[in-house]
Lab assay of single mutants.
Amino acid sequence: TEYKLVVVGAGGVGKSALTIQLIQNHFVDEYDPTIEDSYRKQVVIDGETCLLDILDTAGQEEYSAMRDQYMRTGEGFLCVFAINNTKSFEDIHQYREQIKRVKDSDDVPMVLVGNKCDLAARTVESRQAQDLARSYGIPYIETSAKTRQGVEDAFYTLVREIRQH
């Protein structure tokens, strides 16, 4: 089974770092803004072998026109913010609204991801993020692309959301 996953969120929150940590098991430290990259990885989730087709997208506003296209083809979405960047957390709402509009559905598989949880300088409390996820009816997972904490959990949870859909 193949799953088309799309990673969305503001610029600099760590979308590529999360994806590369999942696929290649290493942490990319330097920031190089993405336009669009796709990665494929075969994994076993709950005993089922599946192929993850992951689209890593641009957070930069100037590429926002490309969003409709990949939102149409994606089956599930990782909505990523950084726990030390309140603005990126506030941006999640717009991504969710755009996904709902493009998919013409209120019920699209999504996982809210709070990345950079290895950093002490948190400005978005776990509780705020949990409340937001609960209001959307989606899971919330904290990750660190640096330490790998929660990385597999985030992507695998999204696959489970798609399966249950």
Rank of each mutant, 00 (worst) to 15 (best):
G59R: 04
Q164Y: 09
L18W: 03
S105Q: 11
H93V: 15
A120N: 12
R40N: 04
V124W: 05
R148Q: 13
A10P: 10
F155P: 01
A154G: 05
I35F: 06
D37K: 05
D32W: 05
A65T: 03
T123I: 07
D91W: 10
T147M: 09
E152P: 12
V44M: 08
M110P: 00
D46Q: 11
Q69D: 10
S16I: 02
Q60W: 14
E125V: 10
M71R: 07
C79M: 15
P109V: 09
V7D: 04
G11E: 08
T147H: 09
Q60R: 15
I141T: 04
A17K: 01
V102H: 00
H165T: 13
R101Y: 01
C79V: 15
F155A: 02
D56E: 01
E36D: 13
Q149L: 11
L52D: 04
D118G: 04
G11D: 11
K103A: 10
K87M: 11
Q149H: 13
Y95V: 15
T73I: 07
M71Q: 09
V108H: 07
R122G: 12
Q42R: 12
Y95A: 12
V159L: 12
S16L: 01
F89I: 05
I35H: 06
E142I: 05
G12W: 13
L52E: 04
V159W: 11
R163C: 10
I138R: 04
G114R: 00
D56P: 01
G74Y: 03
P139Y: 05
V159F: 03
S126V: 09
L78T: 01
T57R: 02
T57M: 13
A154Q: 01
Y3S: 07
Y136H: 07
I92D: 01
N25E: 10
E48D: 06
E152M: 10
D68L: 03
Y39H: 01
N84P: 08
H26R: 05
C117V: 09
R40F: 09
T123W: 04
Q164I: 07
A121W: 06
D29K: 09
T73F: 13
I138Q: 04
L55D: 14
N85A: 04
Q164L: 04
H93G: 11
Q128S: 15
L112E: 03
F155K: 02
I162E: 01
G137E: 02
L22K: 15
G137Y: 00
K41T: 13
Y136V: 10
R101N: 04
Y39M: 02
A65W: 01
Y140S: 02
L112P: 00
V124Y: 09
Q164D: 15
C79K: 03
V111W: 00
T73K: 10
D56G: 00
V8F: 03
E62Y: 15
A133Q: 03
E90A: 10
E62H: 15
P33W: 03
L51D: 14
A121H: 11
G74W: 01
I141G: 01
E62G: 12
Q130Y: 07
E75H: 06
T34H: 02
G59M: 05
G74K: 02
E61K: 11
S135N: 09
S16E: 01
E75P: 02
Q21A: 15
I92K: 04
S88Q: 08
E152T: 12
V28S: 13
R122T: 14
M110W: 07
C79E: 00
D29R: 08
A145G: 13
T143S: 05
L52S: 02
G14H: 01
N115L: 15
D53N: 00
R134V: 10
N25P: 09
A17F: 00
K100M: 11
L52V: 12
I138F: 02
F89L: 11
S64E: 13
D29T: 10
Y95Q: 08
T49C: 10
S144E: 09
E61Q: 14
N115S: 12
T123K: 07
E90W: 08
T57C: 01
R72E: 03
V102W: 04
M110I: 10
F81V: 07
Q164K: 11
E152H: 11
V8P: 01
E61D: 14
E142T: 04
F27D: 02
V80F: 04
K15T: 03
Q149K: 05
C79H: 02
V108D: 01
P139V: 06
A145D: 02
Q60L: 13
S38I: 14
S144F: 04
D29L: 08
V113Q: 00
D106L: 15
Y140P: 00
E48M: 07
D118R: 00
M66G: 09
F77Y: 14
A133D: 05
D91P: 06
N115G: 07
T157I: 06
T1E: 07
L51M: 14
R160V: 08
K15E: 00
R96S: 14
Y31W: 08
I35Q: 02
C117E: 09
Q69L: 11
L112Y: 05
Y70V: 10
A121R: 05
R163T: 09
R134H: 12
E36N: 03
P139M: 02
T123C: 09
K87P: 09
I92G: 00
Y70F: 13
Y3Q: 04
R127I: 05
H165M: 13
E152D: 08
G12H: 15
T157W: 08
R101E: 02
I54Y: 06
Q98S: 15
I83H: 14
Q69K: 03
L5I: 10
T157E: 07
T57D: 02
Q94T: 11
R101T: 04
Y39T: 02
N84F: 01
